Simulated assay, not measured.
Amino acid sequence: MTTTSAIALNPTKTWFWQGFPICYQTQGTTGPAVVLVHGFGASWGHWRKNIPSLATNCRVFAIDLLGFGDSAKPTPGEKISYNFETWAQQIADFCREIIQEPAILVGNSIGCIAVMQTAVSYPDTARGVALINCSLRLLHDSKLQNLPWLRRAGAPLLQKILSIKAVGRFFFHQIARPNTVKKILLQAYGSPQAVTDELVDILMQPAADPGAADVFLAFTAYSSGPLPEELLPKLPCPAIILWGTADPWEPIELGRELGDFPAVMKFIPLEGVGHCPQDEAPEIVNLILQDWIWEMNRAIDRKV
């Protein structure tokens, strides 16, 4: 992935997982391991403003989930399903094979569900999880009845229409355009200044890859699987939650309820920030994560 950012980053690396090339970025040589996991449609580049700062005291790894960024985008089928169980296994295997020790897992949006599923299914790979504007999965089958009737009826109908390959691919190519992507980002971000051409380019480049449309359609049809309120009670490690108060997609009023689970050590609202605080307000997010990682290390050292 090529970016125009002035922030110094290392060349990306490739790890082969189940025969598929997986792209990741890494920086830092000392301290605890931290794995950064992006949200839907994004990639490791969404953490470009966080990696150098965290790498001053940590070994940072930002991974492209299978189907996204510069990682492989195999056609969904019998061998590969684009769901949280698949991504959890990918993250866990990455910790075991590349990092070779448990890591602190940090996610944004659907990346939060992926890191929680990793910690629950593979507790030996996670020392803690940080959730940034966690996806509440409001279009999940079990939550449709709580939506206004128009959205309750419209969501399954749209999924059915998009399941027609020709229609779905046409729809994907209509939204995978720079102007459309920029409009979507301007809705999601609290600060318009954070929606730069570089950010649009980071999201646009993988959309041109063969298979990108099929991955998009496979996930839009995925309305089952784990919910955050199902995973948090099972979490075997401490958690912290950060939430931009201006997020139009994942309301903080609902997000606050996640802070009531025993595993959650802190719930920190970020005033005026939208769905992707790590990119919109990196100077705030970086400090919070650094302090929390330091606290985690002290707690572990005391136990040892």
Rank of each mutant, 00 (worst) to 15 (best):
F61Q: 10
T245N: 04
K234M: 08
T4N: 13
D64V: 06
A42S: 14
A119H: 09
G28I: 15
Y122T: 03
A103M: 10
Y189F: 15
L258W: 05
M1P: 10
E230K: 12
V273I: 14
Q100L: 09
N297H: 11
R48W: 09
S142C: 04
T30A: 12
T196Y: 10
Q187R: 11
G259I: 07
L147N: 06
S191Y: 13
L54C: 10
R48N: 05
A42N: 06
R256M: 09
K13M: 11
I63R: 03
L254T: 04
Q27E: 14
D301R: 10
Y122W: 11
C23N: 15
G154W: 15
I184Y: 10
F216N: 02
G244H: 02
L65D: 02
E250D: 14
P238N: 09
T4S: 13
V120E: 07
T86V: 05
A62Y: 05
L270F: 06
V304C: 00
V115H: 03
N297G: 12
V273R: 00
Q205A: 14
A188R: 06
C95D: 08
A119S: 11
F219L: 05
R177T: 00
L157F: 11
C237G: 09
W15A: 07
D214K: 00
P228W: 02
V285M: 04
K165G: 04
Q18W: 00
G168A: 10
R169K: 15
N57A: 14
K183D: 11
T180Y: 14
R59H: 08
T30S: 11
L231W: 11
A92K: 03
L162I: 08
E229H: 12
H173L: 01
D214W: 00
R256T: 02
K143D: 07
A207F: 01
P251N: 11
G69K: 02
